[in-house]
Amino acid sequence: MRKHDLSNAHWRKSSYSSGDSSNECVEVADGVPGVVPVRDSKLAAGPVLMIGPVAWTHFIDTVRTTNSQP
């Protein structure tokens, strides 16, 4: 398993997370080659999912399609 240095990662709140000021959201980090790091904002020091870019694109496309259906 390859380790990635996330010490300087810039985390951002997912646009699909709640728009209120709560900490209950998904965060992603950009700029990590070959993976998309994903974490729960409530567990900032906790586990991070490392998702491959193809799988991430498929996931986002599925979320967008599901949310756009009446």
Rank of each mutant, 00 (worst) to 15 (best):
M50P: 09
V63S: 09
W11A: 02
G34M: 01
A55P: 15
V35A: 03
L43P: 11
G46H: 08
P37K: 03
R12T: 14
V35T: 04
D5G: 06
T57R: 12
S18Q: 13
S18W: 01
P47S: 12
R39A: 00
V54F: 05
S18M: 03
K3Y: 08
K42E: 11
R2I: 12
V35Y: 00
D30P: 13
H4Y: 05
S21D: 10
E27D: 02
T62D: 10
R64A: 08
Y16C: 07
S68K: 14
V32G: 02
S14K: 02
V48C: 00
T65Q: 15
S14R: 01
S15V: 06
A55F: 01
D40A: 05
V26I: 10
S7R: 09
H10S: 14
E27Q: 01
M50L: 15
M1T: 09
T62F: 11
G19M: 04
G52K: 09
K42A: 09
P53S: 05
S21N: 12
P70C: 15
L43Q: 15
S7G: 07
P33S: 05
C25A: 03
F59A: 10
V63E: 12
H10M: 15
A9Q: 07
M50V: 07
Y16D: 06
V38M: 03
G52P: 14
G19T: 13
V38Y: 04
I60C: 07
P33W: 00
A45F: 11
K42Y: 02
W11M: 06
V54R: 09
R39C: 00
W56G: 07
S17Q: 06
P53Q: 07
S41A: 03
Y16R: 15
P37F: 05
D61P: 12
D40I: 00
Y16W: 11
S14F: 00
V48M: 00
T62M: 12
K13V: 03
K42W: 09
H4D: 08
V38H: 06
S41L: 01
V32R: 01
E27H: 02
W11E: 09
P53E: 06
S68A: 15
Y16N: 08
D40F: 05
F59T: 14
R39P: 13
F59K: 10
V35H: 02
M50E: 10
H4K: 07
A44D: 08
F59L: 10
K13E: 05
N8K: 11
S41T: 10
E27W: 00
V28Y: 03
V54A: 14
K3M: 06
V35R: 08
P33H: 02
S7W: 00
R12Q: 12
S14C: 05
S18N: 11
H10F: 13
T57W: 09
H58T: 14
I60Y: 04
L43D: 10
V32D: 05
A29Y: 00
V54N: 07
A55G: 12
R64K: 15
L43S: 15
I51G: 04
V32M: 03
A45K: 06
D5Y: 01
W56K: 12
P33Y: 03
T57C: 12
A9R: 02
S21E: 14
A29I: 00
N67H: 13
G46F: 02
S7Y: 00
V26G: 05
T62W: 08
A45G: 14
I60S: 01
V28L: 05
S41Q: 10
D5N: 11
L49F: 07
H10L: 09
P47N: 13
